[in-house]
Amino acid sequence: MLKIWNGMFVGVGGLGTITLKRIFEYAALKEPKIKKIIGAEKHGLAQREGAVDVYVRFLLSDNDEVPKYYLTSPTISIGEADLVIGLEPVEVLRNSKYTSSQTVFIINTNTIQPPLSISGQVKYPSIEEIKNAIKEISGSSKIIMFNATELAMNKMGQALYTNNIMLGAAISTGAIPISKEKIEETIAEQLKDVKKNLKAINIGYNIGTDLLSKI
């Protein structure tokens, strides 16, 4: 059986969206049932504090033989996302047409207001409004939202660990077709301050487990 898995990570330039994607890709290389990995990212002008959306796609199969040409598109279509990690809440809303009732959401509620909102020209919606809209558009019940930046600052002393807290929460939902061990192994290979990053994963894992049980 061939199965395609789609991850969509959205955020703002500079938040580490591409690094997060890279962890998924390197970890996927370790997972035998993932036969093919493909993904799209943004570089250059678009990165400068602008909206960033990246995709990572896996072709899962129990057999070794997979078609040469399948899962060739680096981007996804309407309703196809299996997992959304939103490093900024409004960016999830912006891309919510890619989600469905099957989508699992991990969303950082820490907002980064675009200049138009800071100068008061366009209203930045409240977290409640964002949550309701995402719920209505996707129809999904698995929407996990918490302030990962605050958590990183309070528990780790640096906002740098935000994304790994988010990743930990995503692992806890079971929505990633890669084991926790393989992701941790990848972090140990690819990132500096391994201990702290693994601690961040566990903080995220615990809060994710907790929030999921309350849904």
Partner: peptide, 19 residues
């Protein structure tokens, strides 16, 4: 397309800006 216009309006535009 499940993304109806009502919600689209709510996401403020975010063009790239100077760092």
């Amino acid at each position: 397309n499940n993304n109806n216009i009502k919600f689209d309006i709510m996401a403020p535009p975010r063009p790239p800006v100077l760092c």
